[in-house]
Design a protein around this nucleic acid. Structure first.
Length: 878
RNA sequence: GCGGACGUGGCGGAAUGGUAGACGCAAGGGACUUAAAAUCCCUAGGAAUGUUUUCCGUCCGGGUUCGAGUCCCGGCGUCCGCACCA
C-alpha cells in the first residue's frame, strides 16, 4: 500500500478514507476473537435507534469510543468494540401509519443507510457481531429470559394505572402526555386500570442502591441521580385504630407509613389516597365523597395539574384513635396529594413540620402544634404559621418525648409501639420504603418483542413452551385503524393452550423497548450462539463493559434497567456478575446556533450567511438576502433546524476532520458548539500534518539509532516523548481535548525544528525527526485513523498503523538536567531561578537569595522564611 | 420546593493549593503573489509606562494559607435532574 497523494498535493480525504476503510475491511483487522489470549477490554457506545440518519451526537459519541478502542488495541489488548441497532419502537409504527411502509422494511432500510454512514466514519468496529433487536434471532432469547425470570419469581402480572389514549387505543408513557392530552391524537388522556406485566426491579432496590458505591468509574452525578430515583427512606409502619362507629364497614384500623414518628403528638388529621380501599368503601355510602374521588382522578392525568394542584381533601367522618391516647380522635380525610402506591397510601398529618400538611390544615382550619423546637428558640413562643419547620431541634408538647432529640424520639416511639400488640400484631413495625416502582413492560404495540404468554380460560396465564420460541411477529398487519394490530389480527392470537389443548389466545402486548437494550451488551460477547442468550464463558470473560459511553439522558432508566437485568440474568444463570458497566462516561451534546426568519420560521444554517464580528454579527438568508435573527445556541434538533448533516461534513472535509473537531473544542462531558470556523481549523490541521509528514518523509535518515544525540536532536526527541506521555495519559482518562492540545503543541514544535533544519540535516537530527514523525502519526491515529494510515505509508511503512503498537516512552527524555523554578516574593512571582535537577533545598535557597530581585526586595534584611517546593516553586517571605 | 453541577480573555477552554490564560478559534500587522486562495512570520487579559517595569485581574463579599481559579463560609447568576414519595 502506498500513499496516493503526492507530497506536493493536498491530502485528498475522500479518496484516502474510502481506500483505507476498504483495506481495513479486507484484512479484517477489527474482528475480535473470543479466544484471543491477550487481556480483554470491552468498549461500548450506546447503540443507536435506526432512525435512518446518523446525527452529530452519534459522530461525537462513536468517535470517543473509537479513540478508546484504537488506543487500547495499540496498548496490546484484545478489544471488543461492537455495534448494533435498538430497532424496535414507535417511530417504525408511526412511519407505517404516515407513509404506509411496513415497520420491518422501514427499520431494515434505515439500518442499511445508517450502517453505510457509520462505515464512512472509519470506526474500528467488529461488524461481524452486529445485532438488531427486532430480529427474531435476538428477541427469541429475550423471550426465553422472560420465561426464566417468570420461573424465578422476577415477573409479575398485576393491575396498574396507566395513561390511556382513547383515540389511539394505547397506553402512553408519561412523557407522551402533554397537558393531559395524547401527543399524537390530542385526545384527553384517561387513567385506566390495566393488567400488565412487571419486572420486579423493586426486589433489588437495596442491592441496586448499595452497589452504586462500588461503581467508582461512574460519574458521581449519575450515581446520585440513581440514588434519588431509588429513593430509600426509613420509617415506621404504624397502625391507627378506628372508631368503629364511624367506619363505613366497621373497619377496625388504618395503617400508615411515616418517616417522622417523632412528630406523632403534633398530629392533626389522617389522610388517605382517593384510591385507598377505605376511601372507596366510604364513597360507596357517600355520593359527595364519590364525586370528590372522581374529581381527583381526572386531575391526576396532567403533569401540569399535578404540579400546581392545590391541596384538597374531603372529610370522611371516620375517626382514628391516637396510638398513645385513646381519647384523642383524629379526622380521616381523603386527600388528593396522597399516592396509593407509596407506603400504605395513608398518612398522619403533622402540619407544623411538613409543608404539605401545613398547606392542608391552613386550608381546612385544623390548626397546628409544633412539637420540634429549634435550638435557641423559646418553646413557649415558637409557632409555625405558613412555613413548616423541618430542621433539627428538641421535642416539645410531646409528653414523654419532651426534651429528646428527633432521633431519640423516633427511637422511643418505635420501641414503645413495637412492644405493644393488638390482634397478635405489633402496633408498629420498622420499615424501609423505596420510591422505585416495579418496571411495567407491557406495551399495546406491534413493533416490539412479543411477550411469550398464552391466556387460557381454564389454565390462566400459560408460558409458551420453550420449543415454540420465538413467538414471532406476524408480517401481515395493517395500520389503518388505531390500536394494536396484533390484537385485531385474524389468526395470530388464536392458539391452543399448551397445557389443556383448549382454545386460547396469545398475549398481544409487546415488551417495552428498554428491555431490548437491557442486555444487548451481553449478547455482543457471543452473538452467534443459538441455544441460549449468552455463552457463559464468553459473557463472563468480557463483561463488565470496561468503558461504556453514551448520553446523560440515559442516566436513570436504561442504566438502571440494565443493572437490574444483569442481576436477573445472573440469578437465572445467564451471566456470572451483577454489574454490567464497570466504567461509564456520559458525553455532552452537540449544540449549534439557531436562526429565525422574519416570519418566525427556523432557518437551516446552510441557508444563512453571517457577516460581521461579535456584537456586530448579523445574518441574512443566503438565497434572498432577507435578514435573519440569530438565536440562542441549542441542542441540534430537527424542529429548530439547527442540525448539521454528518454526511455533508464528511463529503466536504472527510471523516477525520469531523472526528478531530468533535474531540478538540470542549471537554468531552460538556456540550460542544459546532462552528464552521472550528471545522475549518480542524481541516487546516489535517493538511498541515500531511505537509509536515511529507517533509519528514523526504529526510534521509540513518536506519540505525545514533549512539549520541546533539542538542537539536535531543530537543526534538524530548518534545516527542513528552507529547507521547501526555497523550497516553489523556486518552486513558478520556480527556480528549487536552490530548488534542498536546498534539498541536508537538506539531508546532516539530514544524519549528524542521523549519530550522539544514537541507541535509546531521544524521542524529535526521534520525530524531524520523522518530518524531513515527510517534506523531501513531499519536493522532486513534482520532484521525485514515490520515494516519496515509501518513504511515508516506513514511515508507508497509504495516497498517491501525495494527501498530503504541510507542514506548523513554523516561530519561522526560527529565531535564536543569530546571527553572519561578521565584515568588510574598506570594507574587518576581523572578526565575535555574538550578540543576538534583540541587538540594539549601543550594536552591542560596541561588534564590543571590538574585537581584530578591536582594532588592529584602533590602538587607534576612528573609522571614524561604519555602522551597521541589520541582515546583520557591517563595521568599520578606 | 429538594438535590447537583458550573461561573477564567472577544469565543471554546488549560492550570496534582505553587509562573493564571496552555492549545484552538476569531482578530490585527507583515511576508509571498499582478491579485486572490493557500502557506509562513509577528502581536495579542486590562491599565499605566521611559521597551522594562509597575499596578489591577479567574462572578461578588469574607476566611484559611508563605501562597487560593483551586479549600472553607455567605451571597448572586446560569444550567441540569427530581418533584405532592409521607
Amino acid at each position: 500500500m502506498t500513499a496516493d497523494s503526492s507530497k506536493n498535493e493536498r491530502y485528498n480525504a475522500r479518496a484516502a478514507e474510502t481506500r483505507w476503510q476498504k483495506t481495513w475491511d479486507e484484512r479484517g483487522i477489527f474482528a475480535t476473537q473470543n479466544d484471543d489470549p491477550r487481556p480483554k477490554y470491552y468498549v461500548l457506545e450506546m447503540f443507536p435507534y435506526p432512525s435512518g440518519r446518523i446525527h452529530m451526537g452519534h459522530v461525537r459519541n462513536y468517535t470517543m469510543g473509537d479513540v478508546v478502542a484504537r488506543f487500547k488495541r495499540a496498548m496490546g489488548n484484545a478489544v471488543l468494540h461492537p455495534m448494533g441497532w435498538d430497532a424496535f419502537g414507535m417511530p417504525a409504527e408511526n412511519a407505517a401509519i404516515d407513509r404506509k411502509v411496513h415497520p420491518k422494511a422501514w427499520t431494515y432500510d434505515n439500518i442499511a443507510s445508517m450502517k453505510a454512514q457509520l462505515k464512512s466514519m472509519g470506526l474500528s468496529l467488529d461488524w461481524a457481531r452486529e445485532i438488531a433487536t427486532c430480529d427474531p434471532s435476538y428477541y427469541k432469547h429475550q423471550q426465553k429470559m422472560f420465561l426464566d425470570f417468570l420461573k424465578a419469581g422476577l415477573v409479575e402480572r398485576k393491575q396498574s394505572k396507566v395513561n390511556w389514549d382513547p383515540v389511539d387505543h394505547t397506553v402512553l408513557a408519561n412523557e407522551q402526555v402533554i397537558d393531559g392530552r395524547g401527543w399524537r391524537s390530542g385526545a384527553v388522556v384517561e387513567q385506566r386500570e390495566l393488567t400488565q406485566w412487571f419486572f420486579k426491579i423493586s426486589d433489588y432496590s437495596e442491592d441496586l442502591l448499595e452497589a452504586l458505591d462500588t461503581l467508582d468509574r461512574w460519574p458521581e452525578k449519575v450515581r446520585l441521580m440513581q440514588k434519588n430515583w431509588i429513593g430509600r427512606s426509613e420509617g415506621l409502619l404504624l397502625r391507627f385504630m378506628l372508631d368503629p362507629a364511624t367506619a363505613p364497614n366497621k373497619e377496625s384500623e388504618l395503617e400508615i407509613f411515616t418517616t417522622r414518628p417523632d412528630t406523632l403528638f403534633g398530629a392533626k388529621f389522617m389522610a388517605i389516597s382517593p384510591d385507598h380501599p377505605l376511601a372507596i368503601a366510604a364513597a360507596a355510602k357517600n355520593p359527595k365523597l364519590a364525586e370528590f374521588i372522581e374529581q381527583c382522578r381526572r386531575m391526576g392525568t396532567s403533569q401540569a395539574a399535578i404540579d400546581t394542584a392545590e391541596k384538597m381533601g374531603f372529610d370522611t367522618g371516620i375517626k382514628a384513635i391516637h396510638p398513645f391516647d385513646a381519647d384523642w380522635k383524629l379526622p380521616v380525610y381523603v386527600a388528593n396529594f396522597i399516592l396509593m402506591d407509596y407506603g400504605t397510601g395513608a398518612i398522619f398529618g403533622c402540619p407544623a413540620h411538613d409543608q404539605r400538611d401545613l398547606d392542608f390544615v391552613n386550608k381546612y382550619g385544623l390548626g397546628n402544634t409544633p412539637v420540634v423546637c429549634p435550638e435557641g428558640q423559646d418553646p413557649a413562643t415558637f409557632v409555625v404559621t405558613t412555613t413548616a419547620y423541618d430542621g433539627d431541634g428538641r421535642m416539645i408538647h410531646s409528653r414523654f418525648l419532651d426534651g429528646m432529640t428527633i432521633e431519640q424520639a423516633k427511637e422511643e416511639v418505635a420501641k414503645r409501639l413495637e412492644k405493644e400488640s393488638r390482634g397478635n400484631r405489633p402496633m408498629a413495625q420498622r420499615q424501609v420504603n423505596y420510591r422505585l416502582r416495579d418496571w411495567g413492560i407491557s406495551r399495546q404495540r406491534y413493533w416490539g418483542c412479543p411477550i411469550p404468554i398464552i391466556h387460557c380460560a381454564k389454565c390462566g396465564t400459560v408460558p409458551v413452551p420453550e420449543k415454540d420460541l420465538p413467538v414471532t411477529l406476524p408480517d401481515d398487519v395493517s395500520f389503518d385503524k388505531p390500536g394494536n394490530p396484533l390484537d385485531r389480527h385474524p389468526t395470530w392470537k388464536n392458539v391452543k393452550c399448551p397445557q389443556c389443548d383448549g382454545a386460547a389466545r396469545r398475549e398481544t402486548d409487546t415488551m417495552d423497548t428498554f428491555v431490548d437494550s437491557s442486555w444487548y451488551f451481553a449478547r455482543f460477547t457471543d452473538p452467534w450462539i443459538t441455544t441460549a442468550p449468552t455463552d457463559l464463558k464468553c459473557v463472563n470473560e468480557w463483561l463488565p463493559v470496561d468503558q461504556y459511553i453514551g448520553g446523560i439522558e440515559h442516566a436513570i432508566l436504561h442504566l438502571l434497567y440494565s443493572r437490574f437485568f444483569t442481576r436477573a440474568m445472573h440469578k437465572t444463570g445467564h451471566t456470572g456478575m451483577d454489574e454490567p458497566f464497570a466504567g461509564l462516561f456520559t458525553q455532552g451534546m452537540v449544540v449549534h446556533e439557531t436562526y429565525r426568519s422574519k416570519s418566525g420560521e427556523w432557518v437551516e444554517p446552510a441557508n444563512v450567511k453571517i457577516d460581521g464580528l461579535g456584537d456586530a454579527r448579523s445574518a441574512t438568508l443566503a438565497s434572498t438576502g432577507e435578514p435573519v435573527e440569530i438565536g440562542s445556541i441549542e441542542k441540534m434538533s430537527k424542529s429548530k433546524k439547527n442540525t448539521i448533516d454528518p454526511d455533508d461534513i464528511i463529503a466536504a472535509y472527510g471523516a477525520d476532520t469531523a472526528r478531530w473537531f468533535m474531540l478538540s473544542d470542549s471537554p468531552p462531558e460538556r456540550d460542544v458548539i459546532w462552528t464552521e470556523e472550528g471545522v475549518q481549523g480542524a481541516w487546516r490541521f489535517v493538511q498541515r500534518l500531511w505537509r509536515l509528514v511529507g517533509e519528514i518523509a523526504d529526510i534521509q535518515a540513518p536506519a540505525a539509532r545514533p549512539a549520541q544525540f546533539g542538542d537539536q536532536a535531543l530537543a526534538v526527541r524530548k518534545a516527542a516523548h513528552r507529547a507521547l506521555a501526555h497523550v497516553s495519559d489523556d486518552i486513558a482518562k478520556l480527556r480528549f481535548n487536552r490530548c488534542v492540545a498536546h498534539i498541536y503543541e508537538f506539531t508546532n514544535a516539530l514544524g519549528d525544528a524542521i523549519g530550522g533544519a539544514e537541507t541535509a540535516p546531521a544524521p542524529d537530527f535526521a534520525w530524531s525527526l524520523r522518530e518524531a514523525g513515527d510517534i506523531l502519526v501513531r499519536l493522532f491515529h486513534p482520532m484521525m485513523p485514515h490520515l494516519a494510515e496515509e501518513c504511515w505509508a508516506a513514511l515508507g511503512r508497509k504495516s497498517l498503523v491501525s495494527a501498530e503498537a503504541w510507542p514506548q516512552v523513554e523516561p530519561d527524555l522526560l527529565v531535564e538536567s536543569t530546571i527553572t523554578l519561578p521565584v515568588q516574593i510574598n506570594g507574587k512571582k518576581r523572578a526565575d531561578v535555574t538550578v540543576s535537577r538534583d540541587a538540594g533545598k539549601a543550594d536552591i535557597e542560596a541561588a534564590v537569595l543571590a538574585l537581584d530581585a530578591v536582594i532588592k526586595a529584602l533590602d538587607g534584611k534576612r528573609p522571614k522564611k524561604v519555602i522551597v517546593v521541589p520541582q515546583r516553586i520557591v517563595n521568599v517571605v520578606a
